[in-house]
């Protein structure tokens, strides 16, 4: 009678352990995950159509996720801001991709994680005319000309694309771990 009960308890304990913890442990500073921008890719591109028509542009951001700890870590959500270089060394914010897909990274590995962001020339124009208008005015640029120029050059990455204000949140059994990151492509 006691043996089956003990077996049942061991099974419950095992299942609850797997469900509740999934191998996650707190990440101390030495084992804190690190994120770097590996590269930016064109995910999809369409022939330019003059504004106000919208021309889509899909960019893929390939991020290296380094887990130096001895435990699995779970990425809970990740967001970052994308800025395009408008003049040498001067960047303008274009979009803020956010992803909530949960994914595990094994211990002592560096994995690649891709975030694809679909933009379009109409949305970029609105951003340049509203939230980024002071910067555009400061640089004395015309929003429409600037966007057309970006579309002409983006295939060869002839201007810098910056990923900044990046924040990845990893869940552990001791709470959330926040990992800020940034990077620029092409690397100079």
């Amino acid at each position: 009678m006691r043996k089956p009960l003990l077996m049942l308890l061991i099974m419950i304990f095992g299942i609850s352990g797997v469900m509740g913890c999934a191998g996650l442990r707190p990440t101390d500073d030495a084992g804190k995950p690190k994120i770097t921008l590996e590269r930016v890719e064109i995910a999809s591109m369409f022939p330019w159509v003059d504004l106000p028509a919208r021309t889509p542009l899909g960019l893929g951001f390939v991020l290296n996720v380094d887990n130096p700890s001895g435990y699995n870590i779970m990425l809970d959500n990740i967001k970052f801001t994308v800025s395009f270089e408008a003049a040498p060394g001067k960047y303008i914010e274009i979009a803020t991709p956010t992803v909530y897909d949960r994914i595990y990274f094994p211990p002592k590995t560096t994995s690649q994680y891709r975030v694809v962001s679909i933009m379009d020339s109409g949305t970029i124009r609105l951003t340049l005319l509203v939230a980024q208008a002071p910067k555009v005015q400061e640089l004395k640029l015309n929003a429409g000309d600037l966007i057309k120029d970006w579309y002409a050059k983006v295939g060869d990455f002839k201007f810098g694309i910056k990923v900044h204000e990046g924040m990845a949140v990893f869940s552990t059994e001791k709470g959330d771990v926040f990992v800020p990151f940034e990077g620029t492509f092409p690397k100079k």
């Binding site: 979009a95 609105l126 951003t127």
Partner: peptide, 18 residues
């Protein structure tokens, strides 16, 4: 709204919500 016609106020509000 962090990229649209009200993003001048929307981006900051989104940060506060998060």
């Amino acid at each position: 709204d962090t990229t649209g016609a009200t993003s001048d106020v929307g981006k900051d509000e989104a940060l506060g919500v998060r």
